[in-house]
């Protein structure tokens, strides 16, 4: 008889076991979500310069905030999160994991870590690509940390939502794409309930480029960068923990469905 593995050993084993999945279709879609917009921007930038035109370095700021942060990052979370526990729940290998003596609550994080690492890698590549486009080198670390921190939080949130609701992707999409526009007309303090607020706190000001319709709220609220990254990391950790708690508590049978216990 073997002893039950520790939570750390469970996370390590699951992450290593499922890591090859990121090199399949969904993983490349994830990479494409970063590489395609940044690559296209670079291509256009290069073409304009070849034709003797002058491309503004402000384009890098625009691609970062309007494309990567507001569109691609949420879509990445919506694409990657179901590949974790939700997919195993629906495609039925999950019971094979749950009949192991390993702590079930550690499985969501273990399965999510390869996706986090893979997404973070491509977000890093994207931010470096934006430097070629003319990004301010002083803002590079802040942008990198902002994207990776937000990716950690958004992936964890979507994993949790996927375990809490059958239509988790739909609820996630509503949060990402309806809540933030709504915050503009709601009390300014509510912008603290958006990822964009913390990303902007970390990635630096875009005051010169921002237009009125791009403002997150009528009145800007600031959060210290150190606090912002701490909040993103803590929020992500909380979501992973809640997802683990949900899995630990929920009876999941061979049909993949939840039973009344």
């Amino acid at each position: 008889m073997s002893a039950a593995p520790s939570p750390l050993a469970t996370i390590r084993a699951t992450a290593r076991g499922y890591a090859p999945r990121v090199l399949q279709g969904r993983g490349w879609v994830l990479a494409g979500l970063v590489v395609v917009p940044v690559g296209l921007s670079l291509l256009i930038f290069t073409l304009v310069r070849i034709r003797g035109g002058e491309a503004s370095p402000a384009e890098a700021v625009k691609v970062f905030h309007e494309v990567l942060v507001k569109m691609m990052l949420p879509i990445m979370a919506l694409v990657a999160a179901p590949a974790g526990i939700r997919e195993d729940l629906e495609q039925r290998p999950l019971p094979l994991l749950l009949v192991r003596p390993a702590p079930a609550w550690a499985l969501p994080l273990g399965k999510g870590l390869p996706w986090f690492a893979w997404g973070a890698l491509w977000l890093g590549v994207g931010v470096l690509g934006l430097q070629v486009l003319g990004g301010d080198p002083a803002l590079l670390p802040g942008r990198m940390v902002a994207l990776v921190g937000a990716w950690w939080g958004e992936l964890a949130l979507m994993t949790l939502v996927g375990l809490l609701f059958k239509r988790g992707t739909l609820w996630g999409a509503l949060y990402f794409f309806l809540w933030e526009p709504l915050v503009r007309v709601l009390p300014p303090s509510l912008q603290r309930l958006t990822f964009t607020h913390y990303i902007e706190s970390l990635a630096g000001s875009r005051a010169a480029e921002v237009r009125t319709n791009q403002l997150l709220a009528q009145e800007q609220v600031t959060t210290h960068p150190a606090l912002a990254i701490l909040i993103l990391l803590a929020f992500g950790a909380l979501c992973w923990a809640l997802a683990g708690w949900k899995l630990q508590r929920t009876p999941i049978g061979l049909a993949g469905s939840e039973a009344e216990g």
């Binding site: 073997s2 002893a3 039950a4 593995p5 050993a9 469970t10 390590r12 084993a13 699951t14 290593r16 076991g17 499922y18 090859p20 999945r21 399949q24 094979l96 994991l97 192991r100 003596p101 390993a102």
Partner: peptide, 16 residues
């Protein structure tokens, strides 16, 4: 999409 031997290794680790 996973290889049997690597998957078995993971299941073994999850069994302690």
């Amino acid at each position: 999409g996973l290889r049997a031997d690597r998957w078995l290794r993971m299941m073994g680790e999850l069994s302690g």
